[in-house]
Write a protein that binds this DNA or RNA. Structure first.
Lengths: 211, 211
DNA sequence: TGTACATCAGTGAACGCGCGTTCACTGATGTAC
DNA sequence: TGTACATCAGTGAACGCGCGTTCACTGATGTAC
């Protein structure tokens, strides 16, 4: 019943007070910043502690190791992603459908832009087979995937497996979000990326084509 | 003019003979294997040398550091990926179009399955902004992207930017390839993943829908 | 075929460094009465 | 309002470890004649 990743208990069992919660938070923030600059490979407990001007020993009161801190960050960011789902509850078949798809794409990419380093690290760890990171990623993307899958399922005779199609769309979004800056180097504007992704997503979800 | 990543010259300028070429190869193979097992974070020069039963000093005759070895691996694998392009030279509008798209998807995923660790590491490094890895990734995916873009460009009045659409499709493929094992855990078979991706790709590239 | 020389190939051993981790401890905070 | 006690919070200092990296060196291979 006790959640080891809970925010309210230190690793040695103490309850966290105001001060402790703040310190934990500062450690997480520093972890995120260092992750942006250097990547997981160069992320050291010693560096994080230094950045917060705290003894390395303090770090170990809150996290077992660096990965645990990154995992906590991932969970926090994941909640934001999951909250994008609102736009999927609406109807996409009507005249505003494409517009709603566009807003979803827009927000999804913005979310990535804000948490680039954490999200890419989460995905790498998940790909490497770490089950905790896999779970956090799945939790974040599940609402999106299921929302899209529901729309695909409402189409008829498509030859598409709803869940696979939804996963394909989420895959596309994730990767476009991760690499869209690369595309601008090849003469493709960000607006085009959004518009094109939105159209592919909208068509796959509804079957309709907007000229 | 001298290519620092050339396969035929050691870092100290010596030309590589038969024996040296073999040793270099064994170091690369060991790097790939260790990458599978542990990921880049735990990949040490010392481990690689140990695996090949060679002094750490030997490693430094061929590679400046671990990343250089992974980069060389990435370049090797990238050539394989680029060679998938044959299927794009053919016509996709005819009755065999969907089948050709399917084969492309199939081979792309198979390629990933074979070189999972290297490809994911390459992509991470590229995302982290390492230009050498970015170049290697772009070189590998460019033929694919351009082939698809050409097909999209042949469509009319789609609202799709050809290059962006092609990038979206390649994005989808890469991510599906990276995570398809996750999907089977949710009741989606590999065949469905291939079929669905192929259909989305085929439709985006040609505009036609196959029932 | 043999020998000498050039250069390719690989290593032993050492150095320093900085990190991970722990422990017994001190200081800060909060609250019961 | 004040005091005593519980527990929250943070640290200094130390340890060992294993890695990265280098250098001067020995041994292996190949080839010119």
């Amino acid at each position: 019943m006790s959640d080891p990743s809970s925010d309210s208990v230190a690793l040695d069992g103490r309850a966290l007070g105001r001060r402790g919660t703040e310190t934990r938070q500062r450690l997480l923030d520093a972890t995120a910043t260092l992750l942006e600059d250097n990547g997981l490979r160069e992320l050291r407990v010693a560096d994080i502690a230094r950045a917060v001007q705290v003894s390395p020993a303090t770090f170990y009161q809150y996290f077992r190791d660096v990965e645990a801190a990154v995992l906590a960050l991932s969970a926090r960011v994941g909640e934001e992603t999951a909250s994008l789902t609102g736009l999927l509850a609406e109807d996409w078949d009507g005249p505003d459908g494409l517009d709603r798809a566009r807003r979803l794409v827009e927000e999804f990419i913005a979310n990535w832009d804000q948490h680039r380093a954490v999200l890419r690290t989460r995905n790498l760890a998940a790909q490497e087979g770490d089950d905790r990171f896999r779970a956090v990623r799945n939790d974040a993307l599940r609402p999106l995937t299921e929302g899209i899958a529901a729309k695909v399922a409402a189409r008829t005779e498509t030859g598409l497996a709803p869940y696979a199609a939804a996963a394909a769309m989420v895959s596309m979004l994730e990767r476009m979000a991760a690499f869209h800056t690369d595309l601008t180097a090849y003469g493709t504007s960000r607006a085009e990326v959004v518009e094109t992704s939105a159209r592919i997503l909208h068509h796959t979800a509804t079957g309709s084509t907007v000229r």
